[in-house]
Write a protein that binds this DNA or RNA. Structure first.
Lengths: 210, 210
DNA sequence: TAGGATATTCATCACTGGATGAATTAGCTT
DNA sequence: AAGCTAATTCATCCAGTGATGAATATCCTA
């Protein structure tokens, strides 16, 4: 705030503070709705540093996206389930656990991917996102379809869409609607939701073998 | 554009043009991201008319919301299904048919309901939206639960959430993901989606009686 | 036909937002 | 030490934004 100009002593975390503030604010409001001044204020830093470190507001946004999503992708890649039921459950659990630290991330992704594909942020996100999709869908493919556990009369693509719908919608839905479903986002409620979804998916997508 | 000041001859549709432009633009971009000048330009009208007819940009937004949502609610109220399967299908069909004319509406609703509940637009939407929810959920309640067709071991609230997830997510998801599911929004694809969802829900939520 | 009500454009104001160059201070190298 | 580079703040610029009052033209009623 009332810091004097000039380089401060010792190590500084201005750059990281900006990333954190950006992650926080862009998770809740649109790119246009967030001002550089607000970002700088939350980071406790002068707005001109945005230009210094990232070139522009858009640059900060993009860098934040990169640094937020890459760990997500890395964590996803480290998992390989075995049986079909485990697959549903593990994929969902992993997903919710990854999203827990930044609750706005799904909506942020949704917003960016609804934007103009020419945008640089779209392109960045698309790259990472398609990899995430590929990994997740590959999982389902191996476990369910190749292993012959899925009902043959279903369109695999629609089945995947159903999976994703049940998984993601609760994170995208407005709070009003979530409250209406008796859910909070506590660990216990996440467990209930996962169990419910797994149950639904087993009955609806898998061959009933017993 | 280059129209002269003063009242034009004959009937005018300036007000309606503004509503239409607002519906169009607010469906795609945020409230903050849409400028009054852009709205006026699309409507082919001077921006000062926004003040004249609606008091402010927010006023236009709210009025547009009202005039868009009230017919939706009216149409929903006119339907009463009988059997459970018909209920799933009719509710979904009705919903998709209502949304078809304005494809951005679900996301618009999502955005508003994620905003600060103090906002006037939130309050407007909340009123109408809760009524829509009540009607739809009442439907499910009567047809499924009271009639004893639903599995008793399910939490009804989670079951409703599943229903809504399958219904709404495809309309909220980014185009990239929809394409990935092999869907367009053609009538034929809507039919496929509805049939698939009904199948899923029947297997997952209903008692298997035969 | 006179005069008020209605519907429209125009010019402008105050404000906000992003960008930018200059000034300032600290660290590092030789 | 001297001087170059890195990291900050500050003051300001300019474009765009919502709002607003005044001017203008048409419609309607008495």
């Amino acid at each position: 705030m009332t810091a004097t100009p000039g380089r401060p002593r010792g190590e500084s975390d201005a750059r990281q503070s900006l990333i954190v503030a950006a992650r926080h604010q862009f998770a809740q409001r649109t790119f246009e709705a967030v001002s550089t001044r607000a970002l700088a204020a939350e980071a406790g830093v002068d707005a001109a540093l945005i230009r210094y470190y990232f070139g522009s507001k858009a640059g900060l946004f993009e860098q934040m996206l990169r640094e937020t999503l890459e760990p997500v992708l890395a964590r996803l890649k480290g998992k390989v389930p075995t049986r079909a039921q485990d697959g549903f459950e593990m994929l969902m659990r992993t997903y919710y656990r990854i999203m827990a630290p930044n609750p706005g991330l799904p909506r942020l992704i949704q917003r960016v991917l609804h934007d103009d594909p020419q945008t640089e942020s779209y392109q960045i996100l698309q790259g990472i996102f398609e990899e995430i999709l590929t990994v997740s869908m590959g999982w389902l493919q191996t476990m369910l379809i190749d292993a012959g556990h899925m009902r043959e009369d279903l369109d695999p693509k629609l089945a995947r869409l159903s999976f994703v719908s049940l998984l993601v919608f609760p994170l995208l839905a407005p709070p009003l609607m979530i409250k209406n479903s008796g859910l909070s986002m506590s660990d216990a409620d996440i467990d209930r939701l996962v169990a419910h979804n797994v149950d639904i998916l087993q009955r609806a997508l898998l061959r009933q073998t017993e």
